[in-house]
């Protein structure tokens, strides 16, 4: 069973009065444990594809399933449930909850899953330690650097033991050193936990690190090669 299966997926936006085809019958299969980069210029449909795979948006055509679960006929609540248990997100601009500390941001996911308090704290701290944020538990996002915030975001995405992590340009706002170290962390997690990673990027360093590189242009996949 594939971790992600998208077949003939289309998405059309209205921009004012103009129709924009963001995705045009895209098909993509990703096996469990893969570390995939979606590359391409901005406007090529990377983010749209990731959003559709994460169930954040509905396709105008085609079928998407994650771990064999078809998104068709799933309510927004069901999709949220699915994301909570199986999919983690990392965003370009971190998107942490600003009023929570690093630890609370991570812990909150576990709480949503209904974990007990002691267990939550232990797991959240262990995960923050894993991404290299020992001792920064009580900092609020505003008190953390961009790299640190993105690590919290990765910890948040991973703490729920998802099978799939979707990362939208995770290094775009980071300097190269920080970006590289974040990428290393992500790769470690991929190997350690067997989590499937799909990230969009136009950063060559990220593309190099990827095990499979899917290139997109104008809403279509133009190249797909496994290294």
């Amino acid at each position: 069973m594939n971790a992600v299966s998208a077949s003939n997926v289309s998405k059309i936006y209205m921009q004012g009065d103009v129709k924009v085809t963001a995705l045009n019958k895209v098909s993509l299969e990703v096996a469990p444990g893969e570390f995939v980069a979606l590359a391409g210029p901005s406007g090529s449909g990377k983010t749209t594809l990731l959003n559709l795979i994460g169930g954040l948006d509905e396709p105008d055509g085609g079928k998407i399933s994650v771990n064999g679960k078809d998104f068709a006929n799933m309510s927004s609540g069901d999709l949220a449930e699915l994301r909570l248990s199986q999919i983690g997100f990392v965003f370009q601009s971190y998107n942490l909850i600003p009023v929570f500390t690093a630890e609370e941001n991570v812990e909150y996911i576990l709480q949503l899953q209904g974990e007990g308090k002691a267990e939550r704290k232990k797991k959240a701290r262990a995960m923050l330690d894993d991404v290299g944020l020992e001792g920064k538990y009580d900092r609020k996002p505003a008190q953390l650097s961009g790299g640190q915030q993105q690590r919290v975001a990765v910890a948040r995405a991973l703490v729920s033991n998802p099978t799939l992590i979707l990362a939208d340009e995770p290094t775009a706002n980071l300097d190269s050193v920080t970006g590289e170290s974040l990428l290393r962390t992500m790769r470690e997690m991929n190997q350690k936990h067997g989590v499937t990673f799909i990230f969009s990027t136009h950063d060559s360093m990220v593309m190099n690190a990827a095990k499979r590189l899917v290139s997109m242009k104008d809403g279509a996949i133009v190249d797909d090669k496994v290294k």
């Binding site: 954040l56 927004s76 909850i97």
Partner: peptide, 15 residues
Amino acid sequence: REFGVMMAIGVKPLR
């Protein structure tokens, strides 16, 4: 935007 993110990390709309 924050709500979008919260939904993305798995918070149900009613919650």
